[in-house]
Design a protein around this nucleic acid. Structure first.
Lengths: 189, 189
DNA sequence: GGTAGTAGCCTAGCCCTCTTAGGCAAGCGA
DNA sequence: TCGCTTGCCTAAGAGGGCTAGGCTACTACC
């Protein structure tokens, strides 16, 4: 019997695409096996378990997002950098809902530390260079920014903004204005 | 054979408690049936399907959270109201992780419109009375606030803040300061 | 107080998913 | 060419979701 040529990389990519189509919760080992024309049990030669599959999707997404953000950030500073970062983040979440959802599963500390999440955090910090904040305000600001981005994107996706007719795009750009304003004028204790 | 006395209300409550213990994704019809000393198939007399169970948890959580927030908001205004709202929100999410997670599943429009989510949105708007914002800034501000709260709580839970030693409580209170600052000084277009 | 009718539970059974154990064959290196 | 590793297989069990159809306890009504 011919070999199907299954590798962890190909599995992960296929799983990520499947996640974007049908949602992470429906990314099943069996469905993936079908796509590769292989029996489900065979995938356990490449994978420890179904959870590992989801973790791999998350790690892939984290890396892809970090790349995108890095590209968006290149050559920009201040508010321009903030907006570019935010838009890259939101665009990725919209284009890849399944991958984005996978990013939200909690990784164990070592995995997280080795992930592109670290790079991501560094870039968020880099934005703040345009706003001259010192510690611990910088950390707080990074957390607030990330919270706002993630919260907005997440609520937008689950329909949390649907009861008001105002276009979410407009709210998004005004939210970024507000974020820029508060970063330039960070309150003292 | 004696009747077990299963009702949709008792099922929902038990499911919500189960969700807080083991996570929504592990709230299964079978597990619930075991808790009631009943066969799993019997629950389909009370429930359309497993998804309905999760939706019911979400609706319960939405109502409970709205109650909590309403209580916290009573007699307060301005920043005090903002902080009280935010803390009630975060406290609920921490005490009831499973219920909170269930709140994030997307409800179909009619269900959402009939849910306590509406009450929740109204209360968020009520906070802004202390900040004299007119439309559409008000809507944008509501969305930004909700995004920040949800994003922070959600990232905190999944460990998104773990790579920095700073206590999340401190970042939380500073984020609220920042939010208050930007609401009092909302940027013009 | 007997007797419908229905609400509440049950068994049987199907399909799907996850996962382990053990087997066979393809293809590479010696 | 031989053998060993790698990649796939079948078999099988556990558990969850759900449907169909049956039995029983309670209710309401005459």
């Amino acid at each position: 019997m011919a070999r199907a040529g299954v590798t962890v990389e190909r599995l992960t990519l296929a799983a990520a695409e499947l996640a974007d189509e049908v949602g992470v919760e429906n990314v099943t080992v069996a469905a993936l096996a079908r796509q590769f024309g292989v029996k489900d049990a065979s995938l356990y030669f490449h994978l420890k378990n179904a959870h590992e599959l989801r973790v791999r999707i998350a790690l892939l997404a984290l890396a892809e997002l970090a790349d995108r953000v890095a590209a968006a950030l290149a050559g920009r500073a201040g508010k321009e950098a903030l907006v570019a970062f935010a838009n890259a983040y939101r665009a990725y979440a919209r284009e890849h809902p399944g991958r984005y959802a996978a990013m939200q599963i909690d990784l164990d500390p070592e995995t997280a530390a080795a992930s592109a999440g670290v790079r991501h955090a560094e870039m968020t910090r880099a934005i703040l260079r345009g706003y001259r904040l010192s510690e611990p305000d910088q950390t707080d600001a990074v957390r607030m920014m990330h919270s706002t981005f993630h919260g907005f994107v997440s609520l937008e996706k689950t329909g949390g903004f649907r009861h008001t007719p105002r276009p979410t795009d407009d709210s998004w750009s005004r939210t970024l204005d507000a974020l820029d304003a508060v970063l330039t004028n960070w309150p003292s204790r």
